[in-house]
Simulated scan of single mutants.
Amino acid sequence: MTTPRPRHGTLTLVTLTLTLGLTAACTSSGSEKDNSASAETGSGSTHTVQTAMGDVKVKDHPRRVVVLDTAELDSAITLGIKPVGATRAGAASAFLSYLPRNRTTGITEVGEIASPSLEKIAALKPDLILSNKVRDGGRYQQLSAIAPTVLTETTGYPWKQNFLVHADALGRKKQARAAVATYDEHVAAVTKSLGGKKKAAAVDVNVVRFVEGADIRIYGKQNYIGTILADVGIGRPAITDKAKDGFSYDVSPEQIDKADADVIFTSTYGSPGKAKVTETTTSGLWRNLKAVRDGKVFQVDDELWIQGIGYTAANQILGELRSDLAG
């Protein structure tokens, strides 16, 4: 009942062009080369970063960065930095599969998200650790004893503000401005491809996530994917306004009719069987949804659409939105 897509998505020409522009902006001098030059010219210089735990003094150009969540990994890669260590994103792949393989090859895994190995982190001798209070607030003192640790308050919805904190900590403000500008241009291009803001707003879109061991989530507006849809100006059904804390409205398979919309994007976290995908999508309630009847249900990569939380992921998502909604 759904339209399958390749796991990594297919970039449109516009997406490819913009992504290449972003890559050039972020690595105009070569990330490793840039870091080495910085170390040679000013290894002792530092600056202060405002974080969720107060002001933290970090090196101007940290070279050995450890990231402990997916947003921090996307930020580092977007800004042309390859971390020396990162937490595992999930069981299927150590790191987010939508990221360029050459940008993640060689990164050392330091444990699972929210339960990293302090010993593995310390062994990498980092000069900067990036995470957030939701994942690592409880171990902040231990992490800070290893290296300067920059935590944002939370993850997800404030991803754009968090990205700027990451850029400040990494000494990559210029590259951050280029990334934001590229995204804004891409958003404008996608909105235009949909016929402008008025036509985009006339199409109601739901994002439905099947989660192993939990209820089905109909995503609201106060989350990562919600901000991207809002930036493009895409309409959202009334159910999204009922989402708890703006995040999601959770339903059982017997309530899936609440997900009705013009277009539905679906993703799955964990085992499809345990996430009740087949049970839900073979039911009469599902088959009667407008999006299903019209052939407007699209399967998307959960790591890209839900877990990625950054500008590299966002540009790929914009490409998929254009392909699916403007086609």
Rank of each mutant, 00 (worst) to 15 (best):
K33N: 14
T23P: 02
T23F: 14
D34K: 04
E40A: 12
S45R: 06
C26I: 10
G42E: 13
G21K: 08
T48I: 13
G21F: 06
A39E: 15
A24T: 09
S43Q: 11
G42C: 11
S43H: 08
S31F: 01
G44R: 14
T23D: 14
A37E: 07
Q50R: 05
G42V: 02
T46Q: 08
G44P: 11
S43C: 04
Q50L: 07
T51N: 11
S43Y: 06
T48P: 01
L20Q: 13
S43L: 03
V49K: 04
D34H: 07
T19W: 01
S28N: 12
K33I: 08
T46N: 15
S43W: 02
S31A: 12
T27K: 01
T48Q: 04
Q50V: 09
K33L: 11
T51C: 11
S38Y: 07
T23L: 03
Q50C: 02
G54I: 01
S31K: 00
M53R: 08
T27A: 01
S28Y: 04
A37I: 03
M53S: 07
A39Y: 01
H47C: 05
S36L: 13
A25Q: 10
T48H: 04
V49I: 07
G42L: 01
A52T: 14
S43E: 02
G30F: 12
G42I: 02
K33C: 04
T46Y: 09
S29C: 03
T41D: 02
S43P: 00
A25W: 05
T48D: 12
C26Q: 08
Q50H: 08
Q50T: 09
A52P: 11
A37G: 15
G42M: 02
G54W: 00
V49S: 13
G54T: 04
S31Y: 03
K33G: 02
H47M: 07
T27P: 03
G21N: 12
M53L: 14
K33V: 13
T27I: 00
G21C: 04
G30P: 10
G42S: 09
S38E: 14
G54D: 13
T41E: 04
H47F: 15
T27W: 00
S43D: 14
E32S: 03
A24D: 14
A52W: 10
G42H: 11
M53D: 13
L20Y: 01
V49W: 14
K33F: 07
T23A: 08
T27Q: 10
T51R: 10
G54Y: 01
L22N: 05
T27S: 07
H47N: 04
S38F: 12
